[in-house]
Design a protein around this nucleic acid. Structure first.
Lengths: 361, 361
DNA sequence: TACAGGAATGGGAGCGCTCCCACACTAGTT
DNA sequence: AACTAGTGTGGGAGCGCTCCCATTCCTGTA
């Protein structure tokens, strides 16, 4: 008897799902009151609340999202934007972990996740259209490049944004990043501690802040250990395996006597490891290796790769949390005529990284 | 002049974005006409169409999605559901590839992707609420278990569904699957062709159809080669690396003379490979190995693993295409009082797999 | 010349909510 | 007794679309 679950076929309505109005009728109250109960307003007597709750349960009522969005101008959805090019580049589990964190946090807040893979300039523009269509309350951006205008465009539209990573040292848009400088520093410290003295590095593309930061950490680590900087020990990769190979070959050419390499990603480290093997260098006996990401790649390498772990899922959670707070703190979009400036102090979070020691050094 | 892009601040409106009504006023036509132009109705004169198009461009008009959904009862969004537990289990790039395919196809059709990671029974129920709130026009389900009631529940709600994989041989719900039987068969044929005669297999959990199918393919392959079946050569894993290790140990205990193993996933193959090394067996000299997934794991193993590749991204595309067609073919949700039965012939697609030969056999 | 039939168009009537104003009704104040 | 100041509550007025029924203006036909 009316306990058939929420199949929606329970009630005798001939078409579609029950509406607020019908719940109100059944509970013997007005629409406004039901709305208040649904939205948890305190301005309802306990008795009424109970009656409405029963009517809701009996009818299997679920508020229509479109109507809510139209009347209330909030969608309870947020967009996560991932540039397609990056999705291939990065260690593969990265984005899945990020999504996992974001998703978990959003689920707790009862918000929906709209995932957008952007694979071309055209799609980027289409995405801006979506935003303008007021489909989401805010935007999460993953792996933004140094010259990406999207973050600023979104703010112009009056939408809250939080980025994963930053475009530069002085990033004006709120972001969550991992401590990439600390990553480089920890890697070098570990290598120095293992008795290595000619420590090279393979960097990412230097137009990305993350690459510069890891390089900066490497240099800081060397300085702290009292080693002199040596540009011949620095080689630029592009976060791909092949890029890692090329960079490693260059390093061996320039400094055949190197005894350790800090590689700015596991995938590049896999490439570097291949080159070392081909050159007859043993890992870790001749050359020690440290990567970044602590991905499956690292665990499966031979020997298993020491790597700096980033708290990816935690970054996702933090981003979502920041965005939700920002949305709540900004009741009506700031897109009115004039500035559209969101003048709050931009927030930033830098989460710690962790060195996972394995046999490669 | 009015070419400031779509910043929306161009026009003199004091708040929010332009509406249909305003476009109509500017173009000197009625609301209905603008709506017709926006939606590409043929019942508009060329002249009027042009005038409206200009007004739209000048005002930077973008239709409000919520209003559309409310009035037209279609959301232009679809949900992709991924069980969280699976997301960890499977070779990691799997879901990212799937998402990539789905996303690409949806972008072409101008639809939004709502990603839902389901990590508990509670969240599964919450997801059903979302569906009832009419947030999406259809649902894509990834890696459904044999006893999962969700597909049927969704159909009861009158929503189109397409699954990735199937729950059983006789799956009533439309699905896209890869040819797992063919995968097992191809692997065995390759091993036989390489002169192996005592070919074992490590399977997935046998309550999953995908595991049974790969096992079936293995058996078919043996039969075709004229080999007698031998249950001592079959060991059950669970798609994890540790499960692969356990299954491999069992096999070595039972049949120390085996000379090849078809492992139903790369991740399990990595585990098996470790056990073989510990047992002093060389790959491929003593034991040949074939995996499934062709993931990064396979490329990075030592030696690189021969593996059966699934067209994951293509599966994603196909799923999305099927769902879109189903949505279009079903103008109004079938959720009226009575049956709610969607009596169309369920469609199914089985995409071919491909053996990628590397040094492990 | 009168009139049917179609093409193009305008605009009313919702869709199902939220917002908010107005109206009871209750107590507490002068 | 006449007031104020709350509480609950009902319901009108939209939100910005789509749907669809007129209405107008052509044409072509009897």
């Amino acid at each position: 008897m009316s306990y058939e679950g929420s199949s929606g076929v329970v009630n005798g309505r001939q078409n579609g799902r029950p509406t607020l109005e019908q719940v109100a009728a059944r509970a013997g109250v007005g629409r406004g009151t039901v709305s208040r109960v649904i939205n948890g307003s305190p301005r309802v007597s306990e008795q009424t609340r109970t009656a409405v709750a029963r009517a809701v349960a009996e009818l299997g009522y679920v508020p229509n999202q479109a109507a809510r969005a139209l009347a209330g101008s909030r969608t309870d959805a947020i967009a996560l934007v991932i540039p397609e090019a990056e999705a291939r580049l990065f260690a593969e589990p990265y984005f899945l972990d990020l999504i996992r964190g974001v998703s978990a946090e959003l689920a707790d807040a009862d918000k929906q996740l709209l995932l957008t893979l952007v694979r071309s300039e055209q799609e980027r523009q289409r995405f801006e259209q979506y935003l303008a269509a007021q489909r989401v309350d805010g935007v999460l951006l993953a792996s933004v490049h140094g010259d990406d205008p999207l973050p600023d465009r979104i703010r112009e539209l009056g939408l809250p944004v939080v980025m994963n990573g930053r475009r530069s040292e002085a990033e004006p848009v709120p972001y969550v990043d991992s401590d990439n400088i600390g990553a480089g520093r920890a890697a070098v410290a570990h290598l120095v501690g293992g008795g290595r003295s000619r420590i090279a590095t393979v960097t990412g593309p230097l137009d990305m802040y993350v690459a510069r930061a890891r390089l900066g950490g490497y240099r800081a680590g060397l300085a702290e250990a009292g080693h002199a900087p040596d540009e011949a020990l620095v080689s630029t990769g592009d976060f791909t395996e092949e890029g890692g190979r090329r960079a490693m070959r260059l390093l061996l050419d320039r400094r055949p006597d190197l005894d350790a390499v800090f590689v700015a990603s596991d995938v590049m480290a896999a490439g570097a490891r291949g080159v070392l093997r081909e050159a007859g260098r043993r890992v870790p006996e001749d050359v020690a290796l440290v990567g970044v990401d602590d991905s499956a790649v690292a665990r499966l390498m031979d020997p298993p790769l020491t790597s700096v772990r980033q708290p990816i899922e935690e970054m996702g959670r933090t981003m979502a949390r920041m965005l939700i707070r920002e949305i709540q703190g900004m009741p009506e979009g700031g897109g009115s005529g004039g500035g559209g400036e969101v003048s709050e102090e931009p927030r930033r979070h830098v989460l710690p990284t962790e060195l996972i020691v394995r046999e490669s050094c």
